[in-house]
Amino acid sequence: MLHIACPWCGLRAQSEFTYANDGTLIRPDLSNDSIDDHYNYVYARDPRRGIQDEMWRHSAGCGQFLKVRRDTLTHEIHATGAPQDDLDVPKDDRS
């Protein structure tokens, strides 16, 4: 069971949360008519073996989205914060 610290509710069990998406994706502006940019946002992903930033939602809690910095090899959670936060824990990309 992962324990995830919601920035608003505190430490809660994984079963209260829903994984949403890769936390580094930024939706291209609608005025951007590059197919590649939209393709990259919707479909392409970086395979991160190691630490990655993700968006989760505290779906069975406050309902807010949060950012989670998590290790995909160990499941260890290094930091959490609001979506707009810069998480300040060192980021080593092991892959």
Partner: peptide
Amino acid sequence: DFYPTYAQRGNFP
């Protein structure tokens, strides 16, 4: 388990 991972093990829920 519904979240990305490379660990060949899942979680209890």
